[in-house]
Simulated assay, not measured.
Amino acid sequence: MNTARDLAVLALAASSDAPVEQGDVSLALAGAELLDLVEAGALAVDSDRIVPGAPPETGDRLLDEAAATFVRQEPYESVEDWLWRRGEGLSAAYFAALESDGLATRTQARRIPVRTGRTVVLDSPERTRAEERRASAEPVFAALATAAGLQDEQPETLEDLTDDTVTAVLAAVGDAVMELEGVRQRRAIESSAFDNIWRGGV
């Protein structure tokens, strides 16, 4: 039940070396939370709807917070809608939690007496566990890492998954990430067109 946290560790480590799309990471983290909460018995997925169970006591503040956001009246909320709602700003929340828990630290820029620099993941058992999960090519974890932009290839073994809930959540995460990429591309095209018009009018 550490999928979301392990994914956050890898995402923060990756962001220290190269830019990652925080929106993609946030959507993948929301999907990981759902799968962690399925494991905790806190929900079921009926078709594409999240059916909440008893509130869990996971010992993880962000997971408990996620469970508290479930819509508890029929027809309930779709997985995709929940991913978008829960995912807003979620990567930043996880990164702040890792720093608060002493698993990451913010470097200090020289000669600037304010909180600047970048956040780096420290060596810890949690980081080792997350890296071992990625190295093991565990299908579900690898699918979430792919959606978050932390690796390039979708694992072939994903096709062998038979758990309907897991496949529904992973499919919803993949669709949401593709939709977000479409939004980014449209904005880039619109921005480029505006710049061309502006230059042409000068």
Rank of each mutant, 00 (worst) to 15 (best):
V120N: 06
V121H: 05
R72S: 09
D60I: 09
W84G: 02
T128K: 12
D195N: 04
E77I: 04
E99P: 05
R110F: 13
A130M: 10
T107L: 15
A96P: 06
N196T: 14
T165A: 12
R129D: 09
A135S: 12
E179F: 13
R134F: 10
F95G: 04
S78E: 03
W84K: 05
P113W: 07
W82V: 00
D160A: 15
A93E: 11
V79R: 00
W82K: 01
G174P: 01
A68D: 08
R86N: 02
P113H: 07
G117W: 09
E131Y: 08
R110P: 15
Q108R: 15
D152Q: 08
A193I: 01
F194V: 11
P113A: 12
M178Q: 15
P56D: 06
L98T: 03
V71Q: 08
D164Q: 14
E80D: 11
G182W: 05
E179P: 04
L144K: 01
A148F: 02
Y76G: 00
Y76M: 01
Q108L: 15
G87W: 05
A147I: 01
L180F: 11
E126W: 10
E88H: 09
S124Y: 08
G59Q: 07
T116M: 14
T105I: 15
R127N: 05
D81L: 10
R106P: 00
A145L: 08
L144S: 01
L161P: 07
R61C: 08
P56V: 09
L98K: 03
Y94F: 08
D164G: 12
F194H: 08
G59E: 03
A67W: 05
E190S: 14
D64H: 07
L161F: 11
A109V: 14
A148I: 07
E80L: 10
L83M: 06
E132W: 09
T167Q: 04
F95V: 04
L144V: 03
L98A: 00
G87K: 04
A168V: 10
E65C: 12
A176N: 02
D81F: 02
R115D: 11
S191E: 14
D195A: 13
L103K: 06
S124R: 09
S136L: 10
P56C: 06
L122I: 09
L180R: 11
E132H: 11
A188I: 06
L170K: 12
E181S: 12
D164C: 09
F70K: 02
A148M: 02
P155T: 07
A92P: 01
A93R: 12
E74Q: 14
L144M: 07
D123G: 14
L150G: 05
V169E: 00
A137L: 14
A104F: 02
A172K: 01
V169T: 00
R115N: 13
A145H: 03
Y76N: 01
R118C: 11
G149Q: 03
A145E: 03
E190H: 09
R61Q: 07
I189Q: 13
E159S: 09
P113D: 02
Q154F: 15
L170T: 04
D160E: 15
R187F: 13
P155R: 10
V79H: 00
L122M: 11
F95H: 10
A93N: 07
A148L: 10
E57A: 15
F95P: 02
G89R: 10
P113C: 05
M178Y: 14
Y76V: 02
E156A: 14
R129V: 08
A104K: 04
R61P: 09
T157C: 06
N196M: 13
P56S: 06
P113T: 04
F70G: 01
D152F: 05
P75C: 04
E190I: 13
